[in-house]
Write a protein that binds this DNA or RNA. Structure first.
Lengths: 111, 111
DNA sequence: TTGTTACGTAACCGCAAGGTTACAAAGTTT
DNA sequence: AAACTTTGTAACCTTGCGGTTACGTAACAA
C-alpha cells in the first residue's frame, strides 16, 4: 500500500520531550497538568507539544470536568511503525538482493 | 544498554527529502551531483542534506577524482531501527501487561 | 456571583532549518 | 598554465520551532 510519507508523526517523534510524553500516556490516561509536571519546561510549552502529538494523531484527548486527559493511540503508532518497518526493509531488501547476486557470481566463478 | 536518545538520526529522517536520498544511496554508491539530479531543489540544498545525513552517521562519503560518492551505513541505520523497536515495545509491553491483568480480573470474576 | 482550578491561546523572542545565489577549492583535461 | 568539472561553503532570507509571560475560558466550588 505504501501510504504517503508520514511527515507529521515522524517530526513529532523527532523531539525527545514528545517521545517522553508519548511514553507517559502510553499505558495510562493523564491530565495535561500531570504530564507537564514531569518536565523542566513551563506548562504552556507542554500544552503545545501535546497539540503537535494530537495533530499527528499519536495522541487523543477528552475532557472530564476542567481537566483534559490524554492517551496514546496505539493503532496510529502501529501505522507509523509499519511504515518504518517497510522503509528499512525496502532498503535492506536491495542489499540482500545484491548479496545474492554476489553469491551467485562467486558460485559461477568457483564452479 | 538503552543508548542515548538518537535525536540526530531521527531528526535527519524526519525530512522527506533526506529519507528519499537515503533510499537512493542505500544499495549503490552515488556522486552528489547524481543525487541532486533527482530532486527539484538546487544542488547546494542537497549538499547540505547530505551533510546532515553524514553528521547523523546514516551515510558515509569518499572521494574519487573530483567526485564525492555517498552510500548508506546499514549498521548505523540498524542501530536506529533497534532503538525504535525498543521504543515501541516498551510501550506496547505496558499495554500487554495491562491486558493480562484485565484478563486475570475477568477470569476471577467469571470463576 | 465570585473565586479557584486546569487548561489552551496569543504575542513575542531567539535560533536553527531549508532554500537561494555567488563564490572558493580541488582535481581533471588540454 | 589555463580552463573546465564537480562539489562544498558563505552570506543571506524566510519560515517554523520551542521557549517564555500574559491573558482568555470553561467547569466547578463557596
Amino acid at each position: 500500500m505504501m501510504k504517503h510519507e508520514p511527515d507529521e508523526p515522524l517530526l513529532a517523534l523527532a523531539d525527545p520531550t514528545r517521545r517522553a510524553i508519548l511514553r507517559l500516556v502510553w499505558d495510562e490516561e493523564l491530565p495535561a497538568g500531570d504530564i507537564a509536571a514531569h518536565f523542566p519546561v513551563t506548562r504552556p510549552a507542554i500544552s503545545r507539544h501535546l497539540r503537535v502529538l494530537r495533530d499527528a494523531n499519536l495522541v487523543e484527548e477528552h475532557r472530564v470536568g476542567t481537566k483534559r486527559l490524554y492517551r496514546a493511540r496505539p493503532e496510529r503508532i502501529e501505522e507509523l511503525r509499519s511504515y518504518l518497518e517497510n522503509y528499512w526493509e525496502a532498503g535492506l531488501g536491495e542489499i540482500k538482493r545484491l548479496a545474492e547476486r554476489e553469491a551467485m557470481r562467486k558460485r559461477n566463478e568457483d564452479g
